[in-house]
Design a protein around this nucleic acid. Structure first.
Lengths: 212, 212
DNA sequence: GTCTATAAGCTGATAGAC
DNA sequence: GTCTATCAGCTTATAGAC
């Protein structure tokens, strides 16, 4: 790779990171190329030169986020133990919320505002993923491995409870008086969520509650 | 009340409703007084005349939303049956999400963007409310009425799972292929959430599962 | 390829006529 | 009290120098 290409990629990722921060703080409409450029340490027109338009830069940011979301739950089959799979799924999702809240907040704002830029991803990628995971849960129920619950509502439940700690971080900090959430919070919340949801599904939580 | 005052109040509420819609769709930064004025059927300067500034109009909208959030859980005491109280709390919250999602989405965007305009409400109103509800749950646990769980994490769990159906409505519709959520969905999701959370707390869900 | 300069339009807010 | 006309500043995006 030439020096020029290396520099080009470095500029690309610097802009993307600056854009991620600004879009996360103010949403698509509230963010401006001006502030993104300042944060990236570049003249404003360079942003447009590299990404053609604000909307396109936003799409790139959204794509980057969606790419990083491959969960362990992906590979689970009807053969696996639902208690272990769901416990891990909850704790991994929760850790992602604690450690990379910005991505979750950008995605949340995009969905709240109607999912106009990400609608295709939801219908073409996430929807098949959901259907296949619902199939696994239905098999767990049919084979008596867990209590009969609505699989879609269960998955939405795990998503919402874990993402809450990223999306509503400001509210949680204001309510608890903390300056930031720490590893102890992660373990405590993970234990609570895992125990309630697993017991609610008629499962026994795994003995070793590693926070992962 | 004079005719003039009546008209004044009607204009006030018309602007507030238009603002609620625009802020809900695009967030504070993305919404413009121009579009709010057009939606309200008024010239743009009238918005500023009535509400002094965009930020103030936004605060008024936020205040209106917070005022409407007094739950039945407010009046619960350690004497009450946690199964009945929590079941009702979940179903009322869920119905609010189904029927008035716009309010939830405005509030969610405000919190995601840092809760700068609503920070005082969180610290001065919602925080004491949370502390008092945590106290009730702790007494339920101490008197053996329910299993020991982290009370704060439990309340966040109920908030997040119910608000999810308002805030992430676009995602849910895209994933399920529905055009809108209906009464049957409300009952089905309410049953699932109530059963999982109550069983997870060592409680037996109430026999009659009214959606309220 | 990367920058400066600038265009064309929209922003929140105001001044002043009626 | 309500409107028209307008302000200065910021928005995205482009044209053209280097």
């Amino acid at each position: 790779m030439s020096k020029r290409q290396a520099n080009r990629e470095e500029v690309f990722s610097r802009i993307l990171e600056a854009a991620e921060i600004e879009f996360g703080l103010k949403g698509f409409g509230g963010a401006s190329l001006q502030h993104i450029a300042e944060r990236a340490g570049l003249p404003k027109p360079n942003i447009v030169y590299y990404f053609h338009s604000k909307a396109n830069l936003y799409k790139q940011v959204l794509n980057n986020i969606a790419d990083g979301w491959n969960d362990l739950f992906d590979k689970a089959t009807a053969m696996d133990d639902p208690a272990i799979v769901l416990d891990r799924f909850i704790r991994i999702k929760l850790r992602q919320s604690f450690e990379n809240g910005r991505s979750s907040r950008i995605f949340a704002q995009e969905v709240i505002q109607g999912a106009h830029y990400i609608g295709d991803y939801l219908k073409e990628d996430l929807r098949p993923w959901l259907r296949s995971r619902v199939g696994v849960i239905e098999q767990w129920i049919e084979t008596g491995k867990m209590r009969k619950v609505d699989p879609v509502a269960l998955i939405f439940m795990i998503w919402s409870t874990t993402q809450h700690y990223a999306d509503f971080e400001a509210q949680i900090l204001a309510l608890t008086g903390k300056e930031q959430l720490d590893e102890a919070d992660l373990v405590r919340v993970g234990d609570t969520l895992s125990e309630i949801i697993l017991r609610g599904c008629g499962l026994t939580p795994p003995v070793s509650n590693h926070p992962l």
